[in-house]
Design a protein around this nucleic acid. Structure first.
Lengths: 201, 201
DNA sequence: ACGCTACTTGACCGATCGGTCAGATCCTGC
DNA sequence: GCAGGATCTGACCGATCGGTCAAGTAGCGT
C-alpha cells in the first residue's frame, strides 16, 4: 500500500515483472519459464523485460535475492547463537521466512540443485549446506540430520508444489498454517527441547 | 552385471536411454533436459532416441510409469485396508518405494505440479491427491495433514534434491537410510501408533 | 518549444528445441 | 549370398529460446 498514489510508474514495471517472474519460476520452473511468457503474463513485451533486467538470470537474482539474504541472516544468527532455545528460535524464523517467501524458497531450495550453475543459486545452496553442516556438527545422529532435511524440504514442498495436491479449502489461512508449521517443524528441527505447546514465552 | 552375456542389444538401448533420461529428468528437470542432452549422455544420436521412443513425453512415461504403478498399488492397498497397523504398513512401503525409485518419485512428486499437463504426470498427481484425501478423511486435524505433506515431500526432497546439500559421506548407505526413514516417516505419517523404536536397531 | 532521459517496442540474430525423413548399416533367416 | 526387418544416423524442418539494436514515444526541466 504505497502512500504515493502514482509510484512514478518507473519502479512499478520492474516490481511487477519481478513478481510475475517469481510466480512463474516457482510454479513452472526457471528453465521452463520463457521471457516471452513472463512478458505476456505481465502485459509487457519481451524487450521491456530485458530493458529492466539485463538477462533472464538477472531477473531471477532480483526476484529471489532478498529472500536469500534473509535466509543467510537467519543462518548466521543460528550459527553465532548459543543456548537451548537456539533451535526453537531457528524454527520460528524459518517458518516466517517460508511463509513470507514461499516462491523464492521453492526456487532456491527445490530447484536449487538443478540450477547450481547460476551464481545466485550457488550462494543459496551454500547457505543451505552451511545450515546442514551446523545441524550435523551439533548432533552427529543420522536420524537428526534426516529429520532436518525432511523438515526443511518438506515444508518448502508443502507450501509450494504440495499446494496443488490438496483442495483449496484444505490448507487454511496463513495464521493457522504458521502455528501448525511451528509445531511440526519444532518436532523435526528441535527434537530435543519440547516447548510444552508454546504459549509464546 | 547381467547373466545373459548379450542381452540381444535390442532391449539394452531402450533401457539405457530410459535410465539416462530418468537421471537427467530427476537432476536437471524434465523441461531443462533436451533430447540431445540425453542422446549425448547415453552415447546415441538424437534420432536414435526418437526411434525407440516416439516423443520426449513418451520417454518420460516409459521411465517413470513403473514407479507410478507401484505407488498406485501402495495407495490402493492403503485405501482398501483397515486396522491399526495400516499406517505403519503404508510407511514401510512408501519408504521402500522412495528408496527404489528416487528419481522417478522426484519427477512426479517434486516436479509434478509443473508438469500436470502431461497425462502420465496427471495420473501420478491424481494418485498423490487421493492419498492426501485418504489421510485427510481419516483424521481431520490440520496438523496431521501437514505432517503427512511434510513427510512425503520432505522424504522425496531429501533423497533427490537434498542429496547435493550434504557431503557424500554424510548420507550413509541405503540400509541405514531405510531404517532412519522408517523412524522419521513413522513419526510423521503414523503419529498415532508408536512402534516402540522397532526392534532391530 | 526544446532537448534529454526513461521507457517501450518490433524486427532481427544465432542457437537450440522437439520432431520428421530418407538413407546407411547391421543382423538374421533362408 | 541375398532379402528384409531392426537399428542407427545426419540432414533438415518450423518453432521458440535468450538476447541485441535502432527506432520510436512519453514525460519533465528549462
Amino acid at each position: 500500500m504505497p502512500i504515493d498514489a502514482q509510484p512514478t510508474t518507473r519502479v512499478r514495471a520492474a516490481d511487477e515483472l519481478k513478481q510475475v517472474a517469481l510466480e512463474q519460476f516457482a510454479t513452472v520452473g526457471f528453465a521452463a519459464t520463457s521471457l516471452q511468457h513472463i512478458a505476456d503474463h505481465a502485459g509487457y513485451s519481451k524487450s521491456s523485460v530485458l530493458y529492466h533486467f539485463t538477462s533472464k538470470e538477472a531477473l531471477l537474482e532480483a526476484a529471489i535475492e532478498p529472500a536469500i539474504s534473509e535466509f543467510e541472516a537467519v543462518l548466521d544468527d543460528f550459527i553465532a547463537g548459543r543456548g537451548s532455545g537456539r533451535r526453537r528460535r531457528l524454527v520460528a524464523r524459518v517458518v516466517d521466512l517460508l511463509l513470507d517467501n514461499r516462491q523464492a524458497v521453492h526456487v532456491f531450495l527445490i530447484q536449487g540443485p538443478s540450477l547450481a550453475e547460476l551464481p545466485i543459486i550457488a550462494r543459496a545452496n551454500d547457505a543451505v549446506r552451511r545450515l546442514a553442516d551446523a545441524i550435523g556438527e551439533e548432533r552427529e545422529s543420522v536420524v537428526d540430520q534426516v529429520r532436518f532435511g525432511i523438515g526443511l524440504g518438506g515444508a518448502a514442498f508443502l507450501l509450494t508444489a504440495g499446494r496443488s495436491f490438496s483442495d483449496a479449502d484444505a490448507l487454511p489461512a496463513d495464521d493457522e498454517l504458521r502455528e501448525v508449521l511451528h509445531v511440526v517443524l519444532g518436532e523435526l528441527l528441535a527434537p530435543g527441547d519440547r516447548p510444552h505447546q508454546t504459549t509464546t514465552d
